[in-house]
Design a protein around this nucleic acid. Structure first.
Lengths: 225, 225
DNA sequence: ACGCGCTGTGAACAATCGGTGATAATAGGT
DNA sequence: ACCTATTATCACCGATTGTTCACAGCGCGT
């Protein structure tokens, strides 16, 4: 996951870079506004923009990016700068951090913003959204890469159960209990078959998620990073 | 969601109150330190504490609350109270805002702090974290230096058992009982093999932890200092 | 009543894991 | 320095677990 750091201060890059790498992010360093705009089109998940920069200011960069993208943006502001405009609709930044900051705080806020923007993508309805996949239990519909996928009720329920807790492993018994009901007296093999059918329908190369088998335990819906 | 505002200045209450209500929060107004301590036990999600207050100071209130709670706290400091700000953060306040502030900024920070603390709670799920290593029994995943490590269930369970009690030595019998179950009738040699496999997968030079063998006793997960 | 699609089951097959024994290496005690 | 008890390592095989398939029962709508 690439994080763009735009600041003319080398010290900022060094301190943030270390923390970001430690947390599994990959910092991309640029030192002026123009480079920031250019780099923002690449495979960047979030921008950290200093306001005071050579070339374009962080505010201009932010506006520029917002013209064509919803890329999450965190602004770095010196104490006393106008903060209202930044977080407000005018600019559309997602958060701001006042200098001087602790790298730790910055990483925490980056995570928070990533999480929040992820949630916003999820929308308000009970539907779940992932890269190229959405699952709506309300209308019992599943779409993959924009197109509908015909799934049977049980398939959707299982998929929704798994996908509503990404990463969490469910045993077959748990799935039977929570999808079928506590009084179901069938074989655990049943779950396998449904998982197989779901997998066959959701052929998802290149998309960042999948249904993983945990040997001896159960299944989980896994999302990369 | 109730936000406690502790300040002796009526103007602060009025300006913050409006913004908070507009954002869906419910302000709870108190005007001195003693009232703040009393109110903090109620159904409050976050505290905004002025430092200069009649009765107890904000710093004392913060101390008081931190004795028994992790309630998120934002301190209000007058310009130039640099020392107070540091003390406040040392006491466990989550953020500080320098007067004069814009209500908008306060609301933004309240949201930021709530998100941050929320996430900290979320990160507090049964997962174990060490330097460069995390073990999550919920998702059956182990990550080393940010990258995933493929481990079998038994390996993860043993590692989790050891790492959840750092420093404590487990005999092979204890591990067999607690990981395999009380009815397991195998050789203790089995444990050795698994430990070997775990060690091979967690090559951890420079990180401050390791699985140590206690000759004639068993194994322990040791963390330096 | 009929056909159709959904669901569950059993069996065959494949993959993976875990335990065991033998052997080498190491630590501890004499 | 030697011997012994303990631990480390390795490779293998068996057994458990997961995958896949075909089929039959069931419910539903026509």
């Amino acid at each position: 996951m690439n994080i763009l750091i735009a600041d003319d201060d080398q010290v900022v890059h060094e301190s943030l870079g270390l923390y970001l790498k430690a947390e599994g992010f990959e910092p991309v360093d640029v030192y002026d506004g123009d480079a920031a705009v250019a780099a923002a089109s690449d495979d960047i998940s979030l921008c950290v923009l200093d306001i005071m920069m050579p070339g374009k200011s962080g505010i201009e960069v932010c506006k520029e990016i917002r013209k064509h993208s919803k890329l999450p943006i965190i602004m770095l502001t010196a104490k006393g700068e106008e903060i209202d405009r930044i977080v407000g609709l005018e600019l559309g930044a997602d958060d701001y951090i006042v200098k001087p900051f602790s790298p730790r705080e910055v990483v925490a806020r980056i995570k928070a913003v990533l999480r929040r923007t992820q949630e916003q993508q999820d929308g308000d309805d009970g539907a779940l959204h992932f890269n190229g996949l959405s699952i709506d239990l309300k209308s019992y519909t599943v779409t993959l890469r924009g197109g509908p996928v015909v799934c049977t009720p049980k398939e959707i329920e299982i998929l929704h159960m798994l996908a509503s807790n990404p990463g969490q492993v469910f045993t077959r018994e748990q799935l039977l209990n929570r999808v079928w009901g506590y009084d179901f007296a069938g074989e655990t093999r049943t779950v396998d078959t449904h998982i197989k059918r779901i997998r066959a329908k959701l052929d998802n190369r290149d998309l960042g998620w999948s249904i993983k088998t945990i040997y001896g335990v159960g299944y989980k819906f896994e999302v990369e990073q």
